[in-house]
C-alpha cells in the first residue's frame, strides 16, 4: 500500500503540553506512561489500543522524512506511514521514540529514544464499529 502523506508537526508533542486522559486527569506529555494510554482506551469504550511492531524503517524522498512499516494488531496488518523523522511514537514500556531523537529533542524539547525495528508502538483503532 502507498504510504500516507507526512503530517505537519502537531503542537502537543512540545514538552510541557497538557494532555487530558480519559478519566479527566491532566498530565504533561513527557510524564505519560504506557498505563495512561491503556487505561484511557479502556474508559473510552470506543477506542482500542493495538500493538504495532516496527518492521522496517526506510528513507523517504521527502526531506526529513522516513517511511515506517508496521505490523498492526493480532492480525499483523501491514501499514506503512510516511512521517517526519522527528515525529514521536510511544513505545510500550519505553516511552517516546522517534527516527531521529536528537531532532525531536531539539524541536520539542521532548526526551526521546531511537525508534528501531522490533519496537512495539501504541496505536489505536475504533472497536466494534458495525
Amino acid at each position: 500500500a502507498a504510504p500516507t502523506p507526512a503530517p505537519s508537526l502537531p503542537p502537543y508533542f512540545m514538552k510541557g503540553s497538557i494532555i487530558q486522559l480519559a478519566d479527566g486527569e491532566l498530565k504533561r506529555v513527557e510524564d505519560l506512561r504506557t498505563e495512561d494510554f491503556i487505561q484511557s482506551a479502556e474508559i473510552s469504550g470506543e477506542l482500542k489500543i493495538d500493538s504495532s511492531t516496527v518492521e522496517r524503517i526506510d528513507g523517504s524522498p521527502a526531506p526529513n522524512s522516513a517511511i515506517i512499516q508496521f505490523a498492526v494488531g493480532e492480525h499483523r496488518v501491514q501499514v506503512s506511514v510516511e512521517v517526519l523523522v522527528e515525529y514521536p511514537f510511544f513505545v510500550f514500556g519505553q516511552g517516546w521514540s522517534s527516527c531521529c531523537p536528537d531532532r525531536t529533542t531539539q524541536l520539542f524539547e521532548l526526551s526521546c529514544a531511537k525508534l528501531s525495528v522490533g519496537d512495539v508502538c501504541i496505536s489505536l483503532t475504533l472497536k466494534n464499529l458495525k
Binding site: Q20, S44, L129, K130
Partner: peptide
Amino acid sequence: NVEPRSVPVFPWHSLVPFLAPTQSD
C-alpha cells in the same frame, strides 16, 4: 486589563496514531 492566557489542553488520543483500518470483531 490583561486577560489570563489560557493553556491548551489536548485529548490523550491526539498523541496516538490510528494505524489500522477499522475491523469488526
